[in-house]
Write a protein that binds this DNA or RNA. Sequence first.
DNA 1: AACGGAAGCAACCGCGCGGCG
DNA 2: GCGCCGCGCGGTTGCTTCCGT
Length: 326
Amino acid sequence: MGHQCCSKQKVKRGLWSPEEDEKLIKYITTHGHGSWSSVPKLAGLQRCGKSCRLRWINYLRPDLKRGSFTAQEERTIVDVHRVLGNRWAQIVKHLPGRTDNEVKNFWNSCIKKKLIAQGLDPNTHNLLSTNYKHNYNSSACKLSDHSLQQPTSTFTANSQIYDISTEMKAPLTPFPTIPPAPDANPYYPPLVHEFSSILTGEYPNPNTQAFLECTASQSSIGSVPISSSTSHPSEFGMSDESFIWAGGYEPIQSILPEKKQPEQQVLETENTNELISVGQNMDASFETTNLGFDFVESTLLPCGMYYNPNPMDQLAWDSGFLQEKK
DNA sequence: AACGGAAGCAACCGCGCGGCG
DNA sequence: GCGCCGCGCGGTTGCTTCCGT
């Protein structure tokens, strides 16, 4: 049975041939898609409009990013999914060049299994029972596990800023309980409660200390430094890859930050691809601050905790400079 | 080399929503 | 208000490729 939209036509189904692709590309790049239902006829295709639309959006669009997901994209997906659930169309808005279908497939084929293998319920992102985890361990994804070894999160405050305001499934419930520390869970690396103490700690690499002191000393609310950073680890001879966040799992209660102008928060992140994309995400988030929501600084943690990341933390998270890799 | 199961991914299906007459 | 239509979305299917035996 064909689609409703094309029940009167004889339509082809299944995989698209290169010739069909060519016809569709040629038509849309020349005329735009307009009404999808009329595209097949006008483009000379024996397909239904729905199929044309899907083919264009998921495969032929020129702005698509091909190739496997990066660790950063993976973290973004997890972060946003934690807030939105399976709303792929919303999730994919935070992954330029990706399609909802692609993200959905990636989630189902890989991330979901990774989360389960780590003892996390992929639906709720909360801890699973031991038995459940055990039962799924054997089916863990065999794809690259870079994200398991090196946290590279953007922490996507942008997506959560926007989506919390408009689409959050449940209200934030700050700190019902503090869960035990998961074992080096890459999806939920610890956050910055001990950030300020780190600043006064001792580091084998003096550059680390210098960088931390320089970049995170602007101001603070409570024990949480609120700062903008104009520095980059590389300026202190630090390699992005040489540091990872590996602290304890100690969430911090959200403290509403001072209202800050978005421009003040923009990081200079041109030095690595990783940080460039951080900057892009941050820029996107700043746009949403125009909406005037009070919780623009909030983001979610597992188990209903939340925390307000600031740009310094964002950078810290991504470059992983807070502690040296063992 | 052959086979079977698992994984990956493109495409389909059905439903809900919004615009319009 | 109602029905129709087109579109977009999320879930699912099924084909292809990969990988271990």
